[in-house]
Structure formats: structure tokens, C-alpha cells
Design a protein around this nucleic acid. Structure first.
Lengths: 202, 202
DNA sequence: TGCAAAAATGCACGCCATGCAAATTCACCC
DNA sequence: GGGTGAATTTGCATGGCGTGCATTTTTGCA
């Protein structure tokens, strides 16, 4: 169940995407298997069958290839935000969209599991992982702004709502990991919103 | 008005700190003056008067030296969290501590202004800037956990409260910057908490 | 088939970052 | 004040990273 691409991409574009995906997938898999330190750009390109120089046409750094987000996930969330015509506050829509994505992740889909493996073995990579999520963040903010019908640079709310929801995601994921996945990720996530409401009322 | 150091540091420790500070200050100043791309580790060490190898004894990357936080600020916030015996919720203490720090920053103290100059000229550095703030984040979480008397890995609240407060900080700073500092930073910050309360109640 | 644009490639270059062993500096104590 | 051991600095060598540029190959389209 892949997402439908709007225009039927030409051969050129399809090949580019295939190469990019192959590089990202190979880099991530190799890093998960043998550890980040044992992976070189040369080894990745050798397995994919392109030149080293080509790698750097697609990614600025080796880490970028390993840490790029699952593009499907980004698109799913965006559509959930802008497409939902149902009622409810913007925050609840945002909360639900991310909740669905967390479930998707918890079930082992996407690149998440492999990325976690790499991060466990190389904690120093974690800040860069968060940094790589910055792109998703901007996309989220733009989607929320679109839904609210305001500009990202004139209204505080899009940024605030996204950052706050991601705060809940972060806290939930961190504790989920720290407790050895003692409870379902979604339980921590829901608890976060409950605690948040309490903290802001008292 | 520097912070009092508890033990009267020996010559060795003082020299180490002086070298570290000189490297960080020089790297940041050079980057602000001539742009990050024009700064090399060699140039920094030449000006400070140490070897290149010594630089890497203190910092893992050139960026690290540029993006390290003002240690005084980190310490100020930590003391505000753990030291305050006044009433109020943990969130309000946290909110107030960060508010004071924002004021301090807005008045042009610390490394903030120079770092902003570098970031404006090199936006690609911004994610790494946020990543560098990760250390502060951990310190904050630990301080809040101490105040609450709970463990960081067993209770959701320390992480949640810190991440949420930082969400408000982030949204406020981003909009403050995006609007060309149309209003005081603190105004955006306070509005963020107001909006937050509204969003979570509705 | 032939042409123009886009992409991939090879090469050169400088910087980054680390390990290791030798030299230097510091703290401590006689 | 001089000697001793530990901490720190340093030079050197090494390998990978990341980029600019000119060239070759591939693709889209007429």
C-alpha cells in the first residue's frame, strides 16, 4: 500500500528516486548491521553500484542518508492535518494524526526500527537524528497553518501547537524507551496530554 | 558579575577552562565576523596559540566550539529550578526561570547575539544549534526531576514539562525572529502560554 | 535519429577527526 | 628548591569527508 503519486513520474524522475532510496536504505541497513563507524560512503556506493561522487549529489553527509525520514509517513501526517474535515480542535486533529503515526511506527513499519538500532549503538548520533526531524517539523507547521488559514510568520499558533504536540511525542517516546517499553507507546502519549491539561490548569 | 566557583580551582583547572573558553570565544567571534565557511580549526588555534590537536582535545567538531551554550546561563536556570522554595506549580517555576533567561538574552548578554549572527548567515547550522541545546535540555530535565522528587526514567512529567516549556520558548523565539522583533520576546512567550491553556481546555 | 538538458562520473584538493608516542607542564611532597 | 608521577599538550601519520570542476553518459523530446 504505497501512496499514489499524483503525476505519473517520468523515467528520469523514477530512476532518481530509486537511486536515492537505494542509497538511503543501504546506508541505514549497513549501519544497523555493522555499526555506524564501520560504514563508509565508498562501501555504500559500491553496493548500490554508483560512484562516490553521486552519493554526494543526493546527500550532503553520510548521516543524512541514514537519518532521512520515511517519506510516506511525512505525507500521511500532512494529509491527515489538511484533509480532515471532521470537527474538533486543531490540537485534537494534530494529536490524532501523530497518534496514528506512532501506532504505525510501533508496529515496526518504516525506517524507525533500524534507525533505533543505530541510535542505540551510537548515541552521539541522537542530536543529529532530532535535527533531521526538523524538516518534518516545518512540513507539519505549514500544514497546521494551512488548516488554520493563517501565516506561519504572523500567527504564533501553528508553531506553538506543533512544538507542543511534538513535546508530548518526545516525552512519550523517551520514557517508552527508558522503561524498556513497559507500556504501549500510545499509553505514554495519552498520559502526556492528560498531564499537560492538569499542569496548565492548576 | 560572574558566578562564584565553589572550590578555589587550581592552576591546572583554571588553565584548562581558560583555553576552552578562548577556543570557543575565538571560534564564535571569527565565525560571526567572516562567516562559518571562512573559519578553519587551524585559524582558530593559531589565534589562541595552541596546536590543532589540542582543539580536538576539547571539542569533537568545529561547530561544537561555536555552538556551546553560555555556561552561566545553564547554571542560572538550574539554580532557579532547584533553589526556588516559593509556591506555585512546577510549570510556573519553569516558565518563570526561562522567562528570566529570555530577558537576559534579549538584553544582549551571553553568546546568543553572536550565535544569531552566525545562524543568519548560515541557516544550515540551525538544526545543529538546536542539537547543541540538547545538553541544556537534559540538565533542565534533571533539575525538574529533582524538584519533583521523581526519577527521570520513571515519571513522565519532568520530560514533558521541560519539552512543553521549550516548545513555548521555541515558538516565541521563532515568531519573534520572523516578525523582525515586532514585539518584545517576552510578549510572544506569554502569549504562547495563554494560547496553550486555551488550546488544551477547548 | 539528432539535439539539448540533466545526471553521473573521475579527479583533485583541503579540511576534519582520531590514534599514538614523545615532550612539556603541573601538583605534591620531601 | 628539586624530584616524582600524573595530567596535558604536541607533532605526526592516517583515512574518510565533502566540494568544485570538466568530462562523459543518459534521458526527454522533436
Amino acid at each position: 500500500m504505497s501512496l499514489p503519486e499524483d503525476p505519473p513520474l517520468g523515467l528520469r524522475e523514477r530512476k532518481k528516486r530509486a537511486t536515492r532510496d537505494a542509497l538511503a536504505d543501504t546506508a541505514l541497513r549497513m549501519a544497523a548491521e555493522r555499526g555506524l563507524e564501520e560504514v563508509t560512503v565508498e562501501a555504500v556506493t559500491a553496493e548500490v553500484g554508483v560512484s562516490v561522487r553521486t552519493f554526494f549529489n543526493y546527500f550532503g553527509h553520510l548521516d543524512d542518508a541514514i537519518l532521512v525520514a520515511d517519506p510516506d509517513g511525512t505525507e500521511r501526517v500532512r494529509r491527515a492535518i489538511t484533509g480532515s474535515t471532521a470537527g474538533g480542535t486543531t490540537l485534537s486533529v494534530l494529536r490524532e494524526a501523530l497518534s496514528a503515526e506512532l501506532t504505525h511506527i510501533e508496529e515496526g513499519h518504516g525506517r524507525w526500527e533500524l534507525q533505533c538500532t543505530v541510535l542505540e549503538h551510537t548515541p552521539s548520533l541522537f542530536p543529529r537524528f532530532l535535527a533531521a526531524r526538523g524538516a518534518d517539523e516545518q512540513a507539519l507547521i505549514a500544514a497546521v497553518a494551512e488548516r488554520l488559514g493563517v501565516g506561519v510568520d504572523t500567527d504564533l499558533r501553528p508553531r506553538l501547537l506543533v512544538h507542543t504536540t511534538l513535546a508530548a511525542v518526545r516525552a512519550a517516546v523517551e520514557l517508552w524507551t527508558a522503561t524498556g517499553r513497559a507500556r504501549p507507546l500510545k499509553a505514554f502519549y495519552d498520559e502526556a496530554f492528560t498531564e499537560l491539561a492538569t499542569a496548565l490548569q492548576g
